[in-house]
């Protein structure tokens, strides 16, 4: 971690995006933002972020699919994925883990927890099999 860690935020709600940008910049991260899946894929093709903060409900390609594509991309093996969802269903959590997310937060989330978690993830080298139990976010 030589330079500032780069984070890509994929979120279609303006106000939430604004808050996430502020939080991560405050935590010392470089931030890029996308409002939908296609834009996110375009950005990912250009650069490799250290972490993607990914909303599930997106116009176009949804968060699960985007997560699967990131995991399928060999260039992005080191990229952590944290998923955010407004639908607090068990099945969504399960789907997120299956799609390969490293952490999963249900909206509304505690900003402190989110930032702490992002920091932790960025400080550890990513293992291929993420710890299942750690994926649950706070409520």
């Amino acid at each position: 971690m030589s330079a500032a860690p780069q984070v890509l935020i994929v979120e279609d709600e303006d106000s939430i995006l604004l808050s996430l940008e502020f939080l991560l910049r405050s935590a010392g991260c470089g931030v890029a933002a996308a409002r939908d899946g296609d834009t996110a894929l375009a950005l990912l093709a250009q650069s490799v972020p250290d972490l993607v903060l990914l909303d599930v409900m997106l116009p176009g390609i949804d968060g699960f699919e985007l997560c699967r594509r990131i995991r399928a991309d060999t260039r992005l093996q080191g990229t952590r994925v944290v998923m955010l969802t407004a639908r607090g269903r068990e099945s969504d959590l399960q789907k997120g883990i299956e799609a390969g997310a490293d952490a999963y937060f249900t909206k509304p989330f505690s900003t402190r927890e989110l930032v702490t978690r992002v920091r932790t993830l960025l400080s550890e080298p990513r293992s291929d099999s993420p710890a299942q139990g750690s994926a649950r976010g706070s409520t």
Binding site: E13, S15, I16, S19, A86, T106, P108, S110
Partner: peptide
Amino acid sequence: RTPLTSIR
């Protein structure tokens, strides 16, 4: 949840 998230 969406507005709540922003508010929180």
